[in-house]
Design a protein around this nucleic acid. Structure first.
Lengths: 89, 89
DNA sequence: ATAGTATTTAGATAATATTCGAAATAGAAT
DNA sequence: ATTCTATTTCGAATATTATCTAAATACTAT
């Protein structure tokens, strides 16, 4: 929903790293957090930004919350970018 | 230089619109500004952000400053995004 | 040299974003 | 029911961003 949110979400290095971690498969919030020197609260905030941008999906299992990539928005982004490709003009 | 700047630059609708305007060819700062209801100072600020992100190049002619697209960074961005394509994994 | 036009820079302000510690919620397990 | 673990939400502090007006710079043309 809107390139503004998507690009803003991707502008933070930590959030891009989270997405790269999730390429391997889904991870819980805690597992994601263990890769960074930030509090759980901060990780949770970044995950909420990624979720708001529709870049990740969450699913609850036991008392964990798992996050996984949602590649569809990234594909839309590539489509937007492709309008600038030399060939196209 | 650095995806952070690039994504941040692209997160503002006005800056994305400026890039789209520049698909047609180079424009002076004033011509760009005429498309928006913002002061020249603000346009100049946005152009400086795009320049900082290497998304545009500037060239001076007479007492105008012309801006043009620099597509190379956009291509790097597509490359970064392509790591998330389903096919690749 | 002076005046005019185009653009940027500086300084101020308001809005938004990032981070933390502490408290709250949700669910699991005893 | 109580406790434990995982995660989020709240409130506050700090930093960053977007915007404006006014002043400065750069170049042109008279």
């Amino acid at each position: 929903m809107g390139f503004a949110e998507t690009f803003k979400a991707l502008s933070e290095p930590i959030r891009r790293e989270i997405l790269i971690l999730l390429r391997q498969g889904s991870l819980s919030a805690g597992e994601i957090g263990s890769h960074f020197d930030l509090t759980g609260a901060t990780i949770s905030y970044h995950l909420s930004q990624l979720k708001k941008a529709d870049l990740v999906l969450e699913s609850r299992q036991k008392n964990y919350i798992y996050y996984e990539l949602n590649t569809s928005v990234l594909e839309e982004l590539m489509l937007w970018l492709s309008q600038f490709k030399e060939e196209e003009r």
